[in-house]
Design a binder for these strands. Sequence first.
DNA 1: TTGTTATATTGCAATATTACGATTAATAAG
DNA 2: CTTATTAATCGTAATATTGCAATATAACAA
Lengths: 109, 109
Amino acid sequence: MGLAKTEIFTEEQNKIALFAKVFGHPARVAILQHLFKINACVCGDLVDEIGLAQPTISQHLKELKNLGLIKGNVEGTSVCYCIDETNWKHMKTLMNEFLNQDLQTNSCC
Amino acid sequence: MGLAKTEIFTEEQNKIALFAKVFGHPARVAILQHLFKINACVCGDLVDEIGLAQPTISQHLKELKNLGLIKGNVEGTSVCYCIDETNWKHMKTLMNEFLNQDLQTNSCC
DNA sequence: TTGTTATATTGCAATATTACGATTAATAAG
DNA sequence: CTTATTAATCGTAATATTGCAATATAACAA
């Protein structure tokens, strides 16, 4: 199949999975880390920084943008990318809720 | 390709991506949430709870176990699964470091 | 207009993922 | 030993992902 049965899961579970999936590739992790460090940069900088072909970086940027985690502003022939702080915060809240779950007891099998 | 170029990324970036990837499917999110809620349960319970076929659940459990996030104990013909607290904490530290990055300034493009 | 630069899109090959039926393995019950 | 019961493994079809060459698009410069 290769296709997740999203209809049998809650909206929250699907949302968590969607965000996690986009972090599930080191290139996208690297792009985000670089954006946090540099604050804003153009696509070409990321190509140089990361070392993947331009179409590949462009594709990863598109996925991050589709989820709303970054935004891009056209500046002449370049496109300047940066973190979308509001959406990043929303994502963080969702992910933290998932990651910070606590066990009721610590008796285990 | 379908194959990530892991060699051009840092170990940290690859680790983050590996953990994120395993959370990138709603079934595995659901399994983990159920384990946190119930504390420990056998594979069959998860099959009933989630509604995917037994081999499919078994496959997802294997991936979670491979990353060390859960552990399974044989109890007769059943296998009892639970969260591996120590490894979960390590993962949480790594992911929080990534998610809680701060922007230097909020001047953006 | 013509050329240049920067990014996006298309198309495709290689590989990975998801899901499940069929089967196997392992333990327990009779 | 035979038969359930439970979970893992195997095999496979359908689909998704990754990466890049080739090409298209868009904005600017001359």
